[in-house]
């Protein structure tokens, strides 16, 4: 009972609820869920989940990052181009990852050390990263050995798939990091920068680290995405940044910083993924799909924000308490 209450009071609860409900809806629509369907859902949506993690950590320290989608495009282009030049898949992928991390560090330096507003900085860097991607590969195309896709879809122990492992790896890195003093300090920074500085916290360092980690998640997302589509496109990640922010908000992460966690963001991104596949599966005319998706997104965000509203929560609690007393 107490445990149940604890889950309900968590900030990610609304997103969990949404995820479960829409998962059920999808189950009904597909007449039951097959394992292969769930697998393909995971395969296609891992990049979005990675980005949601990345953007969430930047929001937690009171910032944001809208350049992650462009980094994904860049990683995709880099991997495909290197593979086309004859480098092995592993090396191409690792260099792609390195590029992403460098992009993250650059964001971190401009935001943390130069102290420029995070939204504007990442807008500017997103033009830079997208520009580089477009410069390297002006038109979509190129291909990579199918072994890459095979590795991505393959299971390590028969069941666990590569994308799940990669996600778990990212979660582990972050979960480990917040258990060090860094974690509490990051949350403190998200609450109030001036107070954090006065408490002797290395504000700049934390910002750089956080954006570096966000770059890493974008790198992983880029690898996953490239393995899924097996070709290159300089604008493939363009719309991903905004969805990842929406996912974080649905997952109960406060855009003011200091509240929420990556677990909620993963749930939020999961909800958005299921939402997309439901809209596709529901046989709406292809023209109405993005409109309907947008409307549901709007409702989802409003619902999760209202659910996190303390005043409203108290009111609802009051109703329940009164009802309980009567019965």
């Amino acid at each position: 009972m107490i445990k149940g209450k604890k889950v309900v009071s968590q900030s990610f609860f609304p997103s969990l609820l949404l995820l479960v409900i829409f998962f059920a809806i999808m189950g009904v629509m597909n007449h039951g869920l097959t394992l292969s369907f769930v697998k393909s859902l995971i395969l296609t949506n891992t990049p979005a989940l990675c980005l949601a993690i990345g953007v969430t950590v930047t929001i937690l320290v009171g910032g944001t990052d809208i350049s992650l989608g462009s980094i994904v495009s860049l990683v995709n282009v880099v991997i495909i181009t290197l593979a086309g030049l004859g480098y092995s898949i592993t090396i191409s992928a690792l260099i792609g990852l390195l590029v992403a991390v460098i992009c993250g560090v650059f964001n971190g330096i401009v935001i943390g050390i130069m102290r420029v507003n995070p939204l504007l900085t990442t807008f500017a860097t997103s033009t830079i990263y997208a520009g580089i991607a477009l410069w390297i590969l002006p038109n979509p195309g190129g291909s990579i050995d199918y072994a890459f896709a095979k590795w991505y879809m393959g299971g390590l122990f028969g069941f666990i798939m590569t994308p799940v492992m990669l996600l778990i790896l990212l979660v582990f890195i972050w979960a480990g990091a917040i258990r060090t003093p860094f974690g509490l300090k990051a949350y403190a920074l998200g609450c109030n920068e001036k107070k954090a500085y006065a408490s002797g916290i290395n504000v700049n360092g934390i910002r750089v680290l956080v954006h570096t980690f966000a770059g890493l998640t974008a790198g992983v997302a880029g690898i996953c995405l490239t393995a899924t589509i097996c070709s290159g496109s300089p604008t493939v990640g363009a719309t991903m940044s905004l969805n990842s922010i929406a996912a974080a908000v649905i997952g109960g992460v406060s855009l003011n910083g200091g509240k929420g966690g990556i677990f909620g963001a993963i749930l939020g991104a999961g909800f958005l993924s299921i939402l997309s596949s439901i809209v596709v599966a529901a046989n709406f005319s292809s023209y109405s799909q993005s409109f309907i998706k947008g409307l549901i997104l709007l409702i989802g965000v409003i619902a999760s924000i209202l659910a996190g509203d303390k005043v409203l929560k108290d009111k609802i609690k009051g109703i329940f308490c009164k009802g309980g007393a009567k019965s």
């Binding site: 401009v110 420029v116 900085t121 807008f123 500017a124 860097t125 997103s126 033009t127 830079i128 990263y129 997208a130 520009g131 580089i132 991607a133 477009l134 410069w135 390297i136 002006p138 300089p234």
Partner: peptide, 13 residues
């Protein structure tokens, strides 16, 4: 186009 966008971004930063 790519180089243009790159330079625009750099100037903006």
């Amino acid at each position: 186009a790519g180089l243009r966008s790159l330079i625009q971004g750099v100037i903006l930063i």
